[in-house]
Design a protein around this nucleic acid. Sequence first.
DNA 1: AACGCACTACTACCTTGGTAGTATAGCGGC
DNA 2: GCCGCTATACTACCAAGGTAGTAGTGCGTT
Lengths: 145, 145
Amino acid sequence: MKPATVHRLGQLQLKILQVLWAQGESTVASVQGSLDEGRDLAYTTVATMLRKMEGRGLVEHRSEGRLFYYKAKVSEDDVTKGLAADLVDRLFSGSLSDLVSHLLTTQEVSRDELERIERLVAHRKKESSKPRRPGSIPRSEMPGD
Amino acid sequence: MKPATVHRLGQLQLKILQVLWAQGESTVASVQGSLDEGRDLAYTTVATMLRKMEGRGLVEHRSEGRLFYYKAKVSEDDVTKGLAADLVDRLFSGSLSDLVSHLLTTQEVSRDELERIERLVAHRKKESSKPRRPGSIPRSEMPGD
DNA sequence: AACGCACTACTACCTTGGTAGTATAGCGGC
DNA sequence: GCCGCTATACTACCAAGGTAGTAGTGCGTT
């Protein structure tokens, strides 16, 4: 199921989703408590945001007594993919290598990171001969860290 | 000078900047004409947006007679870097390879792209022994396409 | 000189993210 | 049975992106 326009997620919404991905079903209080220690938002702020997000189909809740247990309705993969694809699209007309190129030339990238990327690409090249559905590469086949 | 929070650029603002990067100084009419053929925005919409963007320091203008010639005040590199870095930060706690990994496993990536990336990484690895300011790799040293 | 066109300025309005206060309701304890 | 705690509902605001209408103004043409 493709849940409405995953891109254009705000800072807070993303943070909330990350909390929900990390801990699964959570009450408002729990989400509030798990959000950045730095900023402490009012309980009602988090509650309101969750309700708004539910309206957008990003999360859903289940009642247990008076309590609401919220859980993410969109997967981390979908969101990540959506945001990343959106960026690549908007900035580089879909060219992944252009993005990587840009990142490599303007960002600080450790030699370690470079080598990880190199392994990933090499691995993916081998894979590309026997194509599969995206995202279905099992962990066990991923190049080691 | 670091121009205020380059991330959180809207769709239209980015499009406008892209037009300005591509054609340099442009009048409102010219920008309007160069925006996606699909959607035709009112002249005043573009003008208003440009004025708002000027307020945020994204563009600036120069008058010539009654005409305003707008030009981007932020470089494409800065914006791209800002947006990409922001994304990498927010989604992958700053790990570039995690982003690339994700993109490689969930996106359709042609063999061509893979090879370009491979060359880029290899090139960057060689470079990394003699570090330089980011972004200063001359065209002539870039791996061929 | 007058008219109209083209361009900028101002204002307005909608949406959405974000933030939070106030109102309401139900459960547990005394 | 009432009190208060606390969780949800409702309402309100602000900022910013986006969209556009209307007002004002000056230049070129006739």
